[in-house]
Design a protein around this nucleic acid. Structure first.
Lengths: 200, 200
DNA sequence: GACGCTGAGACGGTTTTCGTCTTATCGTCT
DNA sequence: AGACGATAAGACGAAAACCGTCTCAGCGTC
């Protein structure tokens, strides 16, 4: 932790400050105090101040998330020689992502201490980026299985569903459970693959 | 909750703000927004601003605490006709107070989100007031049993012990457990009653 | 209708925060 | 050793946030 890069140290400090006070209440000086870096250094590494810094933090959190997700999904291929069918791949993506969200300590704290800010990042301002990064990571994974259809649309849909069921769990569906996830996704997925993208 | 007194509404709002951001980061405008009261009203009810307001909040929390404590201890008198011996009374006080501290949701949140501030209120700046209020409530309870000794000294001691064991539980003592509490308190109590206030 | 209480918010003064800049220190490379 | 880049510390003026007070309008009560 101590020997990390300077920018990592600063982002970690910003993350801690965030958890304590919420983005809105954190000042650059708080991050200076928490990171041990000097004000000048912070502005050199993140020119633009708080906005740029927290933007960088969000990007890092997001890529970390998808690094873990893709690693877990790739490693978890059952036989790991023969690729599974699309449906199994999708189910594994969704269930793993759901589990990762539910285990995310930082996210839980942020939702508890600054629900407004955090919900915004998950559902409004932040959603386009989430979908973009998700596409970067996951399109290559699913594309070979569903060509020639557009994989980006599928990912877009899955991201929205996963986040919605994470934020507001349903009595009828549990996307953390492979059985339930498969039951929900199968019809939509087949419709999609047969050229009838789900209504909406 | 809505029909409460204005000052109660404002103090409740201040409490919520506190839990979210810690006293240091809360502004009058935050409390205005959270309470629905206007800035003018807040300054009229708490002339002096944030300091006075949070002071009032601490006093309220404190008196609430001891209201609950004395009610529980009084009601919990085993036969409730014949008064117990001093030792049993003291043990009941300490165990009940410990349980109340451990169940205090607000206190737990404050200790988690603003440990520095909160610890200060429990151990340094705030301790004199805690002891003073404790004395107001508890001296009448114990005085009849230990006259002609000074009950204030005993209360002072018990407050400090209870807070210390709450903040830093020991492997050897559990002041939430009557058996353990009695074992710890009996020797000190007897020494005190026999005119040898515990060394220190 | 007069009166008191309250919410809304304007206002100037103060404090905090920002973003830049300078200086001193430290480690590294030559 | 000496030059150099990176960094911590913190000074500085400008901008923003915050404070405490004040006015005013709305609303219920007498």
């Amino acid at each position: 932790m101590v020997g990390d890069d300077l920018d990592t140290r600063i982002l970690d400090a910003a993350k801690r400050c965030c958890e304590q006070w919420g983005v809105a209440k954190v000042t650059i000086d708080d991050i200076v105090a928490a990171s041990g870096a000097s004000r000048a250094t912070i502005y050199r590494l993140f020119p633009g101040g708080k906005d740029v810094l927290f933007e960088a933090l969000r990007v890092r959190e997001l890529t970390d998330f998808f690094d873990v997700l893709t690693a877990a999904v790739s490693a978890g291929g059952d036989g790991d020689g023969e690729p599974d069918d699309v449906e199994s791949l999708i189910v594994r993506l969704v269930t793993t992502a759901t589990a990762e969200l539910r285990n995310d300590q930082h996210l839980a704290i942020m939702l508890a201490t600054a629900p407004g800010e955090t919900l915004g990042q998950l559902t409004v301002e932040g959603l386009p980026r989430i979908i973009r990064v998700a596409a970067d990571y996951l399109v290559p994974l699913v594309k070979p299985h569903i060509e020639p259809l557009d994989p980006a649309l599928l990912i877009d849909l899955l991201v929205r569903l996963t986040i919605s069921y994470f934020l507001a769990p349903s009595d009828l569906v549990d996307l953390g459970d492979p059985r339930s996830a498969r039951a929900v996704l199968r019809p939509a997925l087949h419709a999609y693959l047969n050229g009838h993208p789900t209504a909406c």
